[in-house]
């Protein structure tokens, strides 16, 4: 690929390192994520998957390396990281809905206060997103009255309300009861078919097979292997990958 052609590269990661005190968590990650790609990040726990994802929007400050989002180095001191984050939606394992706000208020908060759109427009957008995740009737309900799956769908709607270019999912179904995983994955699959660029830390094999265009296998802070899901699942090249897949399959 022509390295100067950045037209369709959404995120480019160059030699990303992260230390927690003396612990070397990421040991030089290099990868590119292009538009409309759905990238699944897999690997053993403690391998740096979440840290990798959180470094990409500087929720975790990278120790060294460069991250280009739409061709702009977000490690540069001239960058307002808040503006970068408006283009990157993030969904967390523990939902992290704001408990003092209703579902609709959760969704409206960031567009109104960061994008500065009007209340009517935000409400309108909020209801559309609630329709999209199938929770219109829960608009005025507080998070504690929602099930885990419903909370996660609201969290997705909240992230989408900023109309981001990219969506990050940090183990979105790990904290859910088995019968609720399906409803969340369904929303994610719809987003993938609509062409959203997504980076998903997940071990949901069904979803990855179905929706992911590429799998990154991260272990011990290194990008051990990457490729199409079928390729990785059926014909893993590295022992580390084989070992891991044999345990979860």
């Amino acid at each position: 690929m022509n390295t100067f052609d950045t037209k369709d590269v959404m995120i480019e990661v160059i030699d990303l390192h992260k230390y927690f005190k003396d612990l070397h968590v990421l040991k030089g990650i290099n990868t590119k994520i292009t538009r409309s790609e759905v990238v699944a990040v897999m690997g053993p726990s403690g391998g740096g998957k979440s840290t990798f994802l959180r470094c990409l929007n500087r929720l975790e400050e990278p120790s060294s390396g460069h991250i280009f989002v739409e061709g702009v180095d977000i490690m540069s001191p001239y960058i307002d990281i808040n503006k970068v984050r408006t283009e990157i939606g993030m969904v967390f394992q523990s939902f992290n809905l704001f408990p003092h706000l209703t579902a609709l208020q959760n969704i409206k908060l960031a567009p109104m206060n960061v994008r500065k759109i009007s209340d009517e427009e935000a409400t309108d957008r909020g209801y559309k997103l609630l329709d999209k995740v199938g929770l219109r009737e829960k608009a005025n309900v507080y998070p504690e009255q929602l099930s885990g799956g419903q909370q996660q769908r609201i969290a997705i709607a909240r992230a989408l309300a900023m109309q981001p270019q990219i969506m990050f999912f940090d183990e979105p179904t790990s904290a859910l009861d088995p019968e609720m995983i399906g409803e969340v994955l369904e929303v994610m699959e719809n987003m993938a078919t609509e062409g959203m660029t997504m980076v998903v830390v997940s071990h949901e094999m069904g979803f990855i097979r179905e929706a992911a265009s590429r799998v990154l296998f991260l272990a011990d802070g290194l990008l051990v292997e990457e490729g199409a899901p079928e390729e990785i699942f059926n014909n893993p090249q590295h022992n580390r990958t084989k070992d891991f897949l044999s345990k979860i399959l």
Binding site: N57, N82, K83, R85, N96, L97, F98, L109, V114
Partner: peptide, 10 residues
């Protein structure tokens, strides 16, 4: 809570 808020660009 803070992470979720910051990740929205707030």
């Amino acid at each position: 809570q803070i992470e979720a808020s910051r990740s929205l660009g707030i």
